[in-house]
Write a protein that binds this DNA or RNA. Structure first.
Lengths: 266, 266
DNA sequence: GCATCCTGTGAAAATGTGGTGACCGGGGGC
DNA sequence: GCCCCCGGTCACCACATTTTCACAGGATGC
């Protein structure tokens, strides 16, 4: 979730790598009609650019990339695990399709294909992503802090905490997962939108900035807790006091009453 | 039963609805070799059953379901949004494929198809699912201890046992295999992720740390039992009492002098 | 009982991890 | 163009955690 773009509605944003003008023509029309933003490229798009474009899905004809196609597919998929990738290419062998899918592609469609089917597959690929993306427009209130997604800002009472964009995205994510420990990788993945490079300390740094601002704005509470070797957890807690039970998370009862793992047999 | 040392994550659990014996034969072999649990059905499986089976993916030939296929597909997909659904069926029109995908199927593959490709597509679908899945992991409770994966922590009542990451992973593994004796090699393999060097005492050391913390947090119970020359077994047991058969839930204060049903040791 | 292997234990050594301040470059506003 | 804000990187430090070691206490087999 948390497409870093505030876009009220979320028209799917798509990048297409292909050169078949006829195909592009038809596909373009469909996408246009659906209101999905899309850009067409004739060759490999650098990963950085894809990130910057904030695309949600990529349609690619491996043929246009030549021999570097596999490497490119690999790179893109590992750098942007959340990206929906649909390979739409001509002739292919089972082995090629398997290789593509294993490399991280989400779907593989052979040309010629009906644009309607391609669209449906793009939708299918993007569907789950979107499902969890449901961003509650309702402000979240935790401790003294109130997080207003519509303002892109957090408040204490009516005073703004003055968060920057990234800081806000971070606190929104953390607060949205209240109580749960989020690992750095996941945080990075969801806030920054792509895979975290090993050794990247960005998350730590922003957590520090966030803590500073939160402490200045709400000195009597601690919000972000470190779980050594794991990640961070957001939970309002009065300084030097016991955790607040405002949001009681008493076990088992309200949590998914799923059958207890591991017992069961007998 | 149970995977011996899959070090990684859980084996994918798959349900197949099909009647084509040849296809099933080949597919079954592949799945077997991959170590994925699977069950084959000749007709529609009630949603409840699917839920109970805790499957992660469903492979279905719509043809075997007859006219009710669409309705069934709809029902399954809306009831289990997290389920990976791959339709693998014979002849089909673009309209049908689009309809299936729109209904919630994640992929659609036409028979005849190479089992390898089907496998790859199941993997692709599950991969995305895993990423998206907001693990609603139910906490597991044993004795007085409650293990919450979402917090990377174990609790007694609402007090944290204050486990480090490794300690947590260890107790999670042990508790997850409740009752079974796990050999050191296996424990190491699954917690540390690689083979244990001969003479490595890490497991012992961590078991000690765990015991210490558990005893401090829950003095009236013993949880980790040593099996000389073999390994360790996790089972809540009141001090100086007999092993409990029914796991006492929440309160746990009063130690029910449960009937001694001593488990025969190896 | 004795030799030997296995496990429990305490503590030191080694390693990993997170907090922090400083610094840098790009971009946008002016 | 100039300046400031912001995001991002680095190096350093403190310390939490993990690993290793040496030794002691039991268990096992003979």
């Amino acid at each position: 979730m948390h497409d870093p773009i505030p876009s009220g509605a979320d028209p799917l944003r798509i990048a297409v790598i292909d050169t078949d003008s006829g195909f592009l023509q038809v596909l373009g029309n469909r996408l246009e009609r659906l209101g999905w933003e899309h850009r067409v490229h004739a060759g490999a798009i650098p990963v950085d650019t894809l990130v910057a474009m904030r695309v949600g899905a990529l349609v690619v004809d491996l043929a246009t990339l030549g021999p570097a196609a596999w490497e490119y597919l690999d790179k893109v998929c590992s750098a942007m695990p959340g990206l929906g990738v649909v390979v739409c290419t001509g002739q292919s062998t089972v082995a090629q399709r398997v290789r593509g899918l294993r490399a991280g592609a989400d779907d593989w469609l052979s040309k010629p294909c009906h644009p309607e089917e391609l669209i449906a597959r793009i939708e299918a690929v993007s569907r789950r992503r979107k499902r969890t993306e449901a961003r509650p427009e309702a402000p979240i209130a935790v401790g003294e802090i109130e997080i207003r997604a519509d303002r892109f800002q957090a408040f204490v009472g009516d005073r703004s905490v003055d968060l920057t964009r990234r800081e806000f995205e971070l606190i929104e994510l953390l607060a949205g997962a209240e109580g749960r420990v989020l690992e750095r990788e996941e945080i990075y993945q969801r806030v920054w939108g792509y895979a975290m490079a090993r050794g990247d300390r960005s998350v730590d740094v922003f957590v520090r900035k966030l803590r500073q601002k939160l402490e200045k704005a709400s000195p009597d509470w601690r919000y972000i807790h470190t779980h050594f070797g794991v990640g961070y957890r957001f939970a309002p807690e009065p300084v030097g006091g016991a955790p607040v039970t405002a949001v009681p998370e008493m076990p088992a009862a309200e949590v998914a009453p799923a059958p207890a793992r591991s017992r069961a047999l007998a």
